[in-house]
Amino acid sequence: MSDLDTIDVSHINFASTVFPTDDDMKLWHSLSPAEQRAVIARKVEEGLQSPPAQKASKAEIMGEVLAEMKHDL
């Protein structure tokens, strides 16, 4: 077990998964370096444990995005 495994970061959640919001940046900068490393390690582990992405063409992806956009309107 590494030191990162002993740091509880389960309560730390960011609003954005791609581009950090101002609040996300404030939260990130409020964390200690050890907490930042633990958050990164948690996200890496989540990615490794998730199923592989299904292959899709650009056209399929764009079709899904456009369909979602129309649905949200």
Rank of each mutant, 00 (worst) to 15 (best):
L27R: 00
F19G: 08
Q36R: 10
L4N: 03
P20E: 01
M62F: 15
L4W: 06
S57N: 04
W28G: 05
D22C: 04
K70N: 13
F19N: 11
H11N: 10
Q36S: 04
V44W: 03
L48V: 02
I40V: 07
I7S: 00
K43P: 05
K58R: 14
Q54P: 09
V44R: 09
K55A: 12
E68T: 13
V9A: 05
Q54A: 12
S50P: 00
D72H: 14
K26Q: 14
L48R: 12
I7V: 13
E68Q: 14
V65Q: 11
D23K: 10
S32K: 05
P33D: 05
V9Y: 06
E46M: 12
H29L: 11
D8A: 06
D24G: 05
M25Q: 09
G63A: 15
I61S: 13
K55F: 10
L31K: 00
E45Y: 06
F19L: 13
V65S: 11
G63N: 15
M69A: 15
P52Q: 03
V65P: 04
H71T: 13
L73V: 13
K43T: 08
Q54W: 00
K43W: 11
H11V: 02
I12H: 02
H71M: 12
V44M: 05
V65C: 11
L31Y: 03
G47R: 03
E46D: 11
R37V: 03
A41P: 03
A56H: 09
D24L: 01
I12L: 01
S30G: 12
D22T: 11
M25R: 14
A41C: 08
A34Y: 10
T21C: 00
Q54H: 09
D23H: 09
G47T: 06
L27E: 01
V18F: 08
L73A: 15
V18D: 07
I40K: 07
S16G: 01
H11L: 08
A38S: 06
S2C: 10
K55G: 13
E45M: 10
A15D: 14
I7Q: 00
E60F: 02
E35I: 02
E45L: 10
I7K: 01
R42N: 04
F14M: 05
M62E: 10
D5L: 04
M69V: 15
K55C: 09
I7T: 04
P51W: 05
L66D: 14
V9T: 07
R37G: 01
T17Y: 10
D5S: 05
D23I: 00
E46H: 10
A59Y: 10
I12W: 01
K58V: 12
T17A: 01
P20M: 02
E68Y: 07
T21L: 00
I7E: 03
P52A: 04
I40F: 02
P51H: 07
V44K: 07
V39D: 02
R37A: 07
Q36K: 07
S10P: 04
G47I: 06
P20V: 07
D8C: 02
S2R: 11
D23T: 02
M69Q: 15
H11M: 08
A59Q: 12
A41F: 09
E46W: 11
D72I: 14
M25L: 13
A56Y: 08
M62W: 13
L27C: 04
L31W: 04
S32A: 00
L27M: 09
H29C: 08
K58E: 12
A34H: 05
F14A: 06
V65N: 08
S16Y: 06
